[in-house]
Amino acid sequence: MLIKLIVIALLLFIVINLFRAGLVMVRQPQPGVKMSRYLGRRVLFSAIALILIFIAQVLGLIEPNPRPY
């Protein structure tokens, strides 16, 4: 259950950073605020989420859905 909550939190961070990058892109350029910082964080959180899911699956903490047939 803890793994699922961590993955959900990471997905929320990914969406938040996506919106923050969009706001920086739409607004007037401000010194010191770079869109690439938020996009980089989004990519980092995505990689962490994927690695965490793979590790949890290998350790047996989560199981994939059974085959539908």
Rank of each mutant, 00 (worst) to 15 (best):
M1D: 12
L2K: 07
I3N: 02
K4Y: 04
K4M: 11
K4V: 13
L5W: 11
L5Q: 14
I6T: 11
V7C: 11
I8L: 09
I8D: 13
A9M: 03
L10S: 08
L11P: 00
L12I: 13
L12N: 03
F13P: 00
V15F: 02
I16G: 02
I16Q: 02
I16C: 02
N17T: 02
N17Y: 07
L18T: 08
L18K: 05
L18G: 08
L18P: 00
L18I: 08
F19G: 07
F19A: 12
F19V: 14
F19T: 09
R20H: 07
A21L: 01
G22F: 13
M25Q: 07
M25H: 10
M25P: 00
V26C: 00
Q28A: 07
P29K: 14
Q30I: 14
Q30D: 10
V33H: 06
K34I: 05
K34V: 08
M35T: 15
S36M: 05
S36H: 04
R37W: 05
Y38H: 15
Y38C: 02
Y38P: 00
Y38Q: 03
L39F: 09
G40E: 07
R42C: 14
R42I: 04
V43M: 08
V43Y: 07
L44K: 09
F45D: 09
S46D: 03
S46C: 11
A47P: 00
I48A: 14
I48R: 04
A49N: 06
L50C: 10
L50N: 04
I51L: 15
L52Q: 05
I53A: 14
I53L: 15
I55C: 08
I55G: 02
A56I: 12
V58M: 12
L59E: 08
L59P: 01
L59R: 13
L59H: 08
G60V: 06
L61W: 15
L61Y: 15
I62K: 10
I62N: 09
I62L: 13
E63H: 10
N65C: 01
P66F: 03
R67Q: 14
P68Q: 14
P68S: 15
Y69R: 03
Y69V: 09
